[in-house]
Design a protein around this nucleic acid. Sequence first.
RNA 1: GCCGGGAUGCCCGAGCGGUCAAAGGGAGCAGACUGUAAAUCUGCCGGCUUCGCCUUCGGAGGUUCAAAUCCUUCUCCCGGCACCA
Length: 396
Amino acid sequence: MSIGSEFDHLMRGVDTVLPETELAERLAEGRPLRVKLGLDPTAPSVTLGWAVVLRKLRHFQESGHTAVLIVGDFTAQVGDPTGKSETRKRLTAAEVRGYAERLLDQFAKVLLPEPLEVRFNSEWLEELDMAEVLELTSKVTVAQMLERDDFRKRFDGHQPISVMEFMYPLLQGYDSVAVSADVELGGADQLWNLMMGRVLQERYGHRPQMAMTMPLLIGTDGEHKMSQSLGNYVGVMDDPADMFGKIMSIPDRLMPQYFELATEVPPQEIIDQFDGLASGDVHPGDLKRRLAREIVDLYHPGQGLPAEAAFDQVFRHSGVPDEIDEFTLDASADQWIPGVLTAAGLTSSNGEARRLIAQGAIKLDGKKIDGESIDRSDLVSCVLQVGKRRFLRLRG
RNA sequence: GCCGGGAUGCCCGAGCGGUCAAAGGGAGCAGACUGUAAAUCUGCCGGCUUCGCCUUCGGAGGUUCAAAUCCUUCUCCCGGCACCA
């Protein structure tokens, strides 16, 4: 790859690079850069949101640079105060360990196996003794801490800020010192933290890293940043049909962002597609299908088209998906549908199920049911459906 | 430390002795319309095989025929004052 196209590839979708001119300079040095990305295992899944930065890390790998992926097992327990208006609840060591284990496989779905260094930051953070911690804290002033917006606001508003929260950026920054990062990647909300890494490296007499941030991907609700706690996410481990469906449900206005940040479709092609959309040559539904296929193919190679077919089967032809959960009926001749639905987990309570029946949302083999009880013999081998997307195959 | 205000359902927020499972909004779910988009309209939105019953209004006690609503106490938050610097 030439320097020019490599540079363009690395800059795809990027939000901010600081200092601006330095990326070209470092690339020109012609050696593999050490590109750090730190992720705290505070939840069990890699979402398309995290995948945005992970993909960027992969772009660096593709150019021969070394990906230094830091699993923040130690920092996860401290808790990143970024964007929080209040003190965050702390996770237990066991929770963090459990998440970290599950995440490692998922990272592998996005990154290349080489060149890659995976490090846990407890490796060095746990080893710091009090004298070293004090030295670390002496490198940064309280005024610098308060430059950060969320700290500033809380401080001015007399909201509590624990000293431990001040420690978070220091620890994350210390990671950069520990791994000698040339570049650190992060979400747009991490810029301040990344710059802290730069400051600390300088104070420790190392060459300061540059910071590169990616925009925060908006979740399927079309409003908030994608996050597991909000439930508006698509996980890279979601099965193809699920992934396809979730992408189809995002608001249209999110499509450009998703194409740019969550796919590898060449920039010029994206521009052409949206030009087509503006002129009416491309139908928004078709473009969204393309988007969904592209994303599914990224995490389940070759599954984009089958996922689309499954989607059409259900939503275009009002059919039933090929793979659905099964439920074995008990022996009673008279089956009470709300009980079945709730036992199978399709509804959360009998009351909810009864209401849905009253609203005409429950179908048996595609036909609306109106009563609550049905003969067992009329149910066996049939498909019970709640709304458009919840299905259950009944077994005798 | 003192004085005052507050804690309500997933979230925000009314209620201030009975007619309160608790107004209103948001989120969510379902129906119509669609491209599983947006916008809009409609219904539902604690549990229970439900004209009734049960568990909820920060925790624990108490007063009352009756408490989210009154009293006591505990916990936590918020304002103001004082103290310290």
